[in-house]
């Protein structure tokens, strides 16, 4: 199978994630969309690694996973404190500071 299809899939997933960040209201779902974007990057890294026949891409995918996990922890902590003090995780409710 042509590996380039995986790149198309990665680009598609990345776009879906980016669109989700822009249109969804719930902070948790926005955050899940960011994670989808990171996973799309991982797919691209692994595919390029296969195309080039070197292992750099696979190693980078490991690092991305760990960074994404750390990001999940920090993000969940922040979003949960936000939710607990307002009983809403909608990004539209984050409106204390406006021009």
């Amino acid at each position: 199978m042509n590996p380039v299809y995986y790149l198309y899939l990665a680009a598609l997933l990345f776009t879906i994630g980016a669109a989700g960040v822009l249109v969804r209201k719930n902070a948790i779902i926005v955050f899940m969309c960011v994670e989808l974007m990171l996973n799309a990057c991982n797919l691209a890294f692994v595919t390029f690694s296969r195309l080039h026949g070197n292992l750099d891409g696979q190693i980078i995918a490991f690092f991305t996973m760990v960074v994404a996990a750390a990001e999940v922890v920090v993000g969940l902590a922040i979003i949960v404190t936000f939710f607990r003090s307002r009983h809403s995780a909608s990004v539209d409710d984050a409106d204390l500071m406006k021009l």
Binding site: M65, V66, A68, A69, A70, V72, V73, L76, A77
Partner: peptide
């Protein structure tokens, strides 16, 4: 869950 994720992925 948060603690699990971090230690799991490390």
């Amino acid at each position: 869950a948060m603690l699990f994720i971090v230690f799991d992925i490390e």
